[in-house]
Design a protein around this nucleic acid. Sequence first.
DNA 1: TACCCGTGGGC
DNA 2: TGCCCAAGGGT
Length: 421
Amino acid sequence: MNRVTWAGDRFLKASRVIPGISTPRSRGLKARFGGGGASPALLLPVGRAGFISASVTLSDSDLLAWYDHNRRTLPWRAPHGEVADPYHVWISEIMLQQTTVTAVIPYYHNFLKRFPDVATLARAPLDDVLQAWAGLGYYSRARNLHRCAQDLVRLGGFPLDVTGLLTLPGIGAYTAAAIAAIAFGVPVVPVDGNVERITARLFAVEDPLPGARKQLAQKAALLNVGKASRKRPSDFAQALFDLGATVCVPRSPACVLCPWQAPCEARRLGRQTEFPRKAPKVVRPVRYGVHFLLLDRSGRVLLRRRPPHGLLGGTLELPGPEWRSNRWAVGEIGEEAPFADRQAKTLRALDWRPVGLVKHVFTHFTLFVDLYAAMVDTLPNPREEEGFPAELDDVGRLALSSLMRKCVETGVAGFFGDTPG
DNA sequence: TACCCGTGGGC
DNA sequence: TGCCCAAGGGT
């Protein structure tokens, strides 16, 4: 039976304890953190069979020392020893939600150029923000970011603590802790996927995600009880991110490079890649859509704005009926097309040609889109709900999702007979 | 709690 | 190719 023991204010000490033996300190910690059931596990090689054994420390200063030599240079990160701009931290944290650093960097630079401060962002039209966000995904982040900027102007600045930050749109437990720690030096541990993974391995947490979230957060809060981390909350938080991103990675963790290899229970067990355990996945359903590429001879295309909330909320799209669970038959196309209700009356029936099939995988379903295209001399004046004509050349600069960019590209190529590749 | 909400890269 | 994964939040 292993127990974590508290060894003063500098270290979290993990000792291997022989079954049946427990110390007053280990009981004290357990009481303090409410540990029932499985004991927090840690530690290390025992000298010899028998009594109490070797103990190994999980030292916050070991991680910070590693960080001082191995920290990544990132655009939103302050130089060593300096404090980051809260606006920069906030924007980067929102962009980095479920998004890789590589994907974020170009968006971050462009975003800061277009919206250099909170006030500029707050007074910008939402569509400008969505344009800057187009392609990044999770568009509610952009909408919340915009709302949040307006709240911040109203408040006169950022709340300086976790509780205050939590009241803002788009800022949850993780992001509030991250901003508080990184920008304001509040000694909290932001628990993201990296920290969950590190914690699950350090303590060999057997319970699977997402059920183990609360347990992992409680254990992660043990990581910064030392003096060193409390003195450098910003560096400590970012050190955890860097450790998770470069050493304690999901597939092949580089344990030999890890400043915490000694106290890591998963490492001791030789089971590093088994943690964090995850609940079995559910099957991803398939949906089918049809979208229409209506072009005119002056190089325009009919676009439409999606409803402001929900899937791809507020982004632009090619018109088409709602997606459904079975594929669309050719015979149904005519009545679903733009201006279908007017074709029998004022418009000549449009000659819709199939121009491609696009597959797109969302987090929770796979979508197949049948594309149909037609060319008219001049686009009819659409009613409000039917959309608006846009220059094809402008599509790259408008707020289209990646799915819709793919549809436009595929449809245009198919219509004009291009052969990709 | 369990869903919903994007996208691109790595293996 | 298919699956996994990424500095999660809202409802």
